[in-house]
Design a protein around this nucleic acid. Structure first.
Lengths: 192, 192
DNA sequence: ACCTGAACACCGTTCAAGT
DNA sequence: ACCTGAACACCGTTCAAGT
């Protein structure tokens, strides 16, 4: 709580940025607003982050971990559907629930650091694919490439929806909206 | 050529914005730069467009038409591959060739007008799907939803690539990079 | 009707100065 | 080492004034 050592200020800055992003979207995250919400001046963040992009990347790293955890938790849960289907649904649901955070990690803005971890952070999807292949749910294509195709499909559905290009998907096969499209995509991916 | 009637100025503004977008990306498209490049003041565009978003939407509409034409032209061409595969490849190639224009129409920025034409502008993809179904290349799912899934996959591959999240896709089955992933996606979509 | 120049309310970032 | 306040170079947009 004491604003002396670097820890609290840095944590307060990150927390302020995260809250502003969630409540007001990316345009609400200005260093002026962040400083005010964190109780410091608008230039104080420069002592803890190189620039604004560096601060946003710290948020992105946290979000990426949360997304991977959601996928793995959903895949590990019980239920009539397969782990592949539960994990895929969890992906698009996370995007819809946290649109600004999702677009922060996979939106247009080129993250300063094109770190491979981001892709390998999508290792959770690779796990889903390998389980799906073992269960005979998916074609016997190279897992890495097949995971990329699955990622692209889930991301495409989510991003088009969040950006307003895909308006209110209709009910498909009893499932509603995006979930139904995810199921349709997985139904269409047949094993060899 | 005479800068008297509204036509030339408006056309010059659009042309200037288009050139700036292609050469310098979205951050280079400022009304000041547009005005200078068009030979008018920076506030002159306000006589022809409501605001900057309105100007960008005029560019987006043109780009959308170009993309649809590319898909249809590729599908109508001759070659060993099917129309579905040629059209799908043409989609991602357009995105890679014109990254800024592609992200203008399907990127994060919510177009002011969430017009249904954008989706129906993707009617070209719907046509591909219906031809693919008739040829026994695709599952017998509802064409509208299947076209959405195809769109999401192609868009996902393109957008992740353009934003740097998908770096240099490896060679897949002899085809290179993104084209190989498009082929893999279509290979995995099996008819019932 | 179209255009201009100054002005306004914002940004991110830099830097000399303080503790 | 950390923080501050003023300053700089940008934005989009508005508006009174000109032709």
């Amino acid at each position: 709580m004491t604003p002396r050592d670097p820890g609290p200020t840095r944590a307060a800055v990150v927390a302020a940025a995260e809250e502003l992003l969630e409540s007001g979207g990316p345009s609400a995250v200005t260093l002026r607003a962040v400083g005010e919400a964190a109780g410091v001046s608008r230039t104080a963040p420069y002592r803890h982050f190189e620039d604004k992009a560096d601060l946003m990347q710290a948020l992105a790293a946290r979000t990426l971990e949360t997304l991977a955890a959601r996928i793995r938790t959903a895949a590990a849960a019980d239920g009539p559907r397969t782990p592949l289907r539960r994990g895929s649904t969890a992906y698009v649901r996370f995007a819809v629930e946290q649109p600004h955070h999702y677009l922060l990690i996979f939106g247009d803005a080129p993250l300063a650091d094109p770190r491979p971890e981001a892709d390998d952070g999508m290792l959770a999807l690779r796990e889903l694919v390998e389980r799906g292949q073992a269960a005979g749910e998916l074609p016997a294509a190279p897992p890495r490439e097949l995971a990329t195709v699955l990622w692209a499909t889930l991301h495409g559905l989510a991003q088009l929806r969040l950006t307003g290009h895909l308006h209110e998907p209709r009910t498909v096969d009893g499932a509603t909206g995006l979930d139904g499209l995810v199921d349709l995509a997985l139904d269409s991916l047949r094993p060899t």
